[in-house]
Structure formats: structure tokens, C-alpha cells
């Protein structure tokens, strides 16, 4: 089997905590915020993985570390044989060519003073790719075509404010595609878009993976939007992956109590299918005070005596399917 394109091993990210005046007076040290606490996964070319979780679970931090926008505090990210955190400035520049990002807000992420053509050409100019003017233009047109902005000539000279939300997100995707990256990181790519537009953008990202072999990391809070597009799902909670497996298996047979609860509260557009949701009390704890043992135990409806003591690793629960819960320790 070929070497995976992306390897993430035991990734840790800590942010220095803030000390309040009271802490300072009591001489209490600052409490670091552990945004990521040992995250590992692999991704092959053409594969789509969805990192799913609520706010504070560390999914966006993971994306930033994969892009080399933040240095990791521990562990490593290896993309195409190169370790991201250890790259020189020049190495980072090269990395940026192979990993590109699609942001959440297409209304904010385009410079209002630049035309669509200039926006898509910008990454080429930054990296000095494409050579002559004609070469750049050719690549820009190819990228816009791939992103479904056809006929290209109708859009090249337009400004962002003339485009709808869906079209803007296509421009963002085209700009990411211009450098022909091997990895796309999409951070909530459709959450700001209208429902009727979302499917097209998701279909586009899915097609890019399948047809052009681009690996895609989709970061989202919404399980339902990725169900049809992701090959694998990694459910995150407080800086850890708590369940990881093929999409179909995770959806049909979630093993971790958090994944079960998360799945049960996703609204289904069918009044006849009103389910009995497992509504967890309270909210995700502060990542500067991670609970002892299993980090989910204070909110877990199935917690038992060992949970506050033992921090469970990911146990295999099926082919390629793991869950970090003591209840599935024996498969």
C-alpha cells in the first residue's frame, strides 16, 4: 500500500493561559489551555476525512497546525514526507503550495478591491508559478473551470460584491486550486451559505477528491453535511479524537457515548422520524481544566467507577473503526 499523503502523530497544542489579577495575587501559575491533546490520523490521496465536534474540541486548531499556521507543542504532522512543524521559511512556502485552505466565510475572505481573476491569480504570483502572463491566465481559467465558475470569461473581471455567496465560495476554492495542491483543508466551508447552495459546494469538494485525487480534511460541527461526502469521520471532544472510523460505520453504529449523543441530536428533516435525542447536560468543559480519567466522564450518561481514573486510548471496535471508551475495551 502506498505511503499516506498526510500523517498526523500524537499532535499536541498548548496555548499559554491567561492569569487573572486574582491568580496573580494568589501566586497561582497561569493554566495552559490544552487545545489538542494527542491527535493522530492518516489520510491518503483522494480521501475525505471529516473532523467533527463542537466548539472548543480542537478541530480548527488541528486545521491551523496542518497548514503550518501554528507550530505544534508536541507530536508531528508529516505531509508528503516532510515534517510541517520543522520547516524553514522557504520550506513552509513550498508546503503552502501542496496544502491549501478553504475558509468559512466567503463574504469576508475575498478582498473587495480585487477582481475574481486577480484573486485566483494571487497565489500563483506569490509563488512565482505559471511563468508568463499567458501561463498564469491559463491556470486561472483552469482553476475557475474546476470550481464550476463557467463560462470563465463572464467572471474574470467581476468584483466579489457582484457575486452570490455560493459563487464567492467557488472563487475561494478556485484560488486554492490554482496551485494544484495535494491537500485541501476546508474549515466549515458551507456553514455560512444558504441551504440550497450548500449541496453544490459539497458536491464540488467531493468531486475534487474523487476525480483529481486531492485529499480533503473537512472541519465541521455539522455531522449531517459531511455524511454523504466523507470517507471517514473523526469525532473530537476536548482536544482528542474519541471515535474514528468509516463514515457509514460511525453513523450506523457509533460506539462512543459522546458520538452517540452527538448523532442523536442532529435534527432530521422528517417530522415522522422524531427521535428520542440523548441530550447531554451542561456544556463542554474549559480546555484549561480537562477532567481526570476519561475526559467525557462528567457528562457521560454511561459513566462508571473506573471512568474518572483511567484515560482510555482508542480501542479497535471494528475494521478500521476505533473508540476511546472503557465500555468497548474488549471490542
Amino acid at each position: 500500500m502506498s505511503e499516506p499523503l498526510l500523517q498526523v502523530q500524537d499532535l499536541v497544542k498548548e496555548f499559554p493561559g491567561r492569569r487573572s489579577l486574582l491568580d496573580w495575587l494568589r501566586r497561582r501559575p497561569a493554566r495552559p489551555v490544552r487545545a489538542l491533546d494527542g491527535v493522530s490520523f492518516q489520510l491518503r490521496a483522494g480521501e475525505v476525512i471529516a473532523l467533527v465536534g463542537e466548539s472548543g474540541c480542537g478541530k480548527t486548531t488541528t486545521g491551523n497546525l496542518l497548514m503550518g499556521l501554528l507550530p505544534p507543542s508536541g507530536g508531528r504532522v508529516v505531509l508528503d514526507g516532510q515534517e510541517v512543524g520543522r520547516l524553514s521559511r522557504r520550506g513552509l512556502q513550498r508546503l503552502r503550495r501542496s496544502a491549501q485552505m478553504v475558509f468559512q466565510d466567503p463574504y469576508e475572505s475575498l478582498n473587495p478591491r480585487m477582481t475574481v481573476g486577480d484573486i485566483v491569480a494571487e497565489p500563483l504570483q506569490v509563488h512565482g508559478v505559471g511563468g508568463s502572463r499567458a501561463g498564469v491566465r491559463e491556470r486561472v481559467e483552469a482553476a475557475l473551470t474546476s470550481a464550476g465558475m463557467t463560462p470563465v470569461s463572464a467572471y474574470l473581471k467581476r468584483y466579489p460584491y457582484e457575486l452570490s455567496g455560493g459563487q464567492r465560495q467557488r472563487v475561494v476554492i478556485a484560488a486554492a486550486l490554482a496551485l494544484e495542491p495535494a491537500l485541501l483543508i476546508a474549515d466549515e466551508p458551507v456553514s455560512m451559505l444558504d441551504v440550497s447552495i450548500r449541496a453544490e459546494i459539497l458536491n464540488l469538494l467531493g468531486a475534487l477528491a474523487k476525480q483529481r485525487g486531492i485529499a480533503v480534511v473537512m472541519i465541521t460541527h455539522d455531522l449531517s453535511t459531511v455524511a454523504a461526502y466523507a470517507d471517514r469521520i473523526a469525532v473530537m471532544y476536548l482536544g482528542r479524537i474519541v471515535e474514528h472510523g468509516p463514515t457509514r460505520q460511525v453513523l450506523a453504529n457509533p460506539r462512543h457515548p459522546y458520538a452517540q449523543a452527538l448523532l442523536s441530536v442532529v435534527p432530521i428533516p422528517d417530522p415522522a422520524a422524531r427521535r428520542r435525542p440523548v441530550i447531554l447536560g451542561g456544556e463542554t468543559p474549559d480546555p484549561s481544566r480537562i477532567p481526570s480519567g476519561c475526559r467525557f466522564h462528567p457528562r457521560c450518561p454511561l459513566a462508571f467507577d473506573r471512568c474518572p481514573i483511567v484515560d482510555p486510548p482508542l480501542f479497535p471496535v471494528g475494521p478500521d473503526h476505533q473508540a476511546a471508551c472503557l465500555l468497548v475495551e474488549n471490542g
Partner: peptide, 13 residues
């Protein structure tokens, strides 16, 4: 602005 962040992610100096 987000578009400056995006430019940074592209690799712009």
C-alpha cells in the same frame, strides 16, 4: 480581515 488571513495561508509574505 479574513482575506488577509487567506493570503497568509496561500503563503504570501
Amino acid at each position: 480581515r479574513k482575506y488577509v488571513m487567506r493570503a497568509r495561508a496561500i503563503g504570501a509574505g
